[in-house]
């Protein structure tokens, strides 16, 4: 694979962008930061599929497309299916010798939001992982259905207010915990599964390159801060993501072959989760006295999860 050098940002910046501006994502949206980084970290031809979601509706508004590579959108749930189908066809045509340029390296990538990954496309994604196609699935996790007005998804964390799980006098927002998608995907025995964040650009670029290089189905969950539904100022996208990774709300780690866990980022000063929650409008109600117990629960969940990750890393099983 032709790899773009990511030794430092200066070298990385010589990569030619293949994701064009004038897409209609909100100002400050982390989706496009992640997509740009993926497309910049390789020189290979890319075949990309997108599930319905913010990314798809904003980057292909007729008569415009923001993609400089092959890109397909079909349904809400089946980017994984479409891309693995393209991968199977590519393999078959290579075998039959009907490709125009059989030696040109091609990578297959599917993008989905958290709604289409955790909920609607879960079965299709699981099937694609099980069939063992050579592709990479990247989930842009903004923890709600941001495209349709911020409904709850199974990626929404406990305590967040959404348009269908609203905080008020009788409720503190969503009452259920977030699905642990990374462990679920690792349990498929996938060769490379990771959770990455755009504020740590180097670990993210390294993770993307590893996933693209690895043969077989790879899954990456990326944190995509949503300025509209998380309710923060667009300029603060990277700051909020910093808070997310430093409070360990989103630990950055990878799981190789379903068992070998490596933590990729250990914050020097671990922040209290209040710092992360307090920076966003969707958690404002948790700071009322009657809701304090939710913050305590979130903090204890984070501590337990971090302990579990560290012990799994030590155990190497």
């Amino acid at each position: 694979m032709a790899i773009t050098s990511i030794k430092n940002l200066k070298e990385f910046s010589t990569s030619n962008d293949r994701f064009e501006g004038a897409h209609l994502l909100c100002p400050g949206c982390a989706h496009s930061m992640i997509v740009r980084e993926l497309m910049n970290c390789t020189d290979d031809n890319l075949v990309i599929g997108s599930n319905t979601g913010c990314l798809e509706v904003s980057t292909a508004v007729y008569p415009y497309t923001s993609w400089d590579t092959s890109w397909i959108h079909i349904g809400f749930e089946n980017a994984a299916t479409a891309v693995t189908g393209a991968e199977a066809m590519h393999k078959a045509r290579k075998r039959k010798g009907t490709l125009k340029d059989p030696d040109a390296p091609v990578k297959f990538v599917a993008f989905g939001g958290d709604g289409s990954t955790f909920d609607i496309g879960f079965q299709w994604l699981s099937g694609a992982m099980e069939r063992g196609h050579d592709f990479t699935y990247i989930c842009l996790d903004n923890e709600n259905y941001a495209n349709t007005g911020g409904q709850r998804s199974s990626a929404t964390p406990i305590g967040a207010t959404t348009s269908t799980a609203q905080a008020g006098t009788h409720s503190y927002g969503k009452k259920e915990k977030k699905k642990d998608i990374v462990s679920i995907m690792a349990a498929h025995g996938a060769p490379y599964v990771a959770q990455l964040a755009p504020n740590k650009w180097k670990s993210m670029a390294k993770g993307f390159q590893k996933a693209l290089e690895t043969e077989g189905p790879c899954f990456i969950n990326t944190v995509s801060a949503c300025t509209t539904e998380w309710k923060f100022d667009p300029k603060d996208t990277i700051h909020i993501t910093d808070l997310a990774t430093d409070s360990l709300m989103f630990p950055i780690y990878e799981i190789i072959d379903g068992h070998e866990l490596n933590i990729l980022y250990r914050p020097k000063n671990v922040l209290k989760v209040e710092d992360y929650l307090g920076a966003q409008g969707r958690y404002r109600h948790l700071f009322k006295p009657e809701n304090k117990h939710v913050i305590e629960q979130i903090q204890s969940d984070i501590d337990k999860n971090w302990e579990m990750l560290q012990r799994r890393e030590e155990a190497r099983i």
Binding site: L9, D17, F19, P27, S32, W201
Partner: peptide, 9 residues
């Protein structure tokens, strides 16, 4: 830094 994090290329 601005190049890598600009969401609008």
């Amino acid at each position: 830094n601005c190049w890598v994090w600009c969401p609008d290329t």
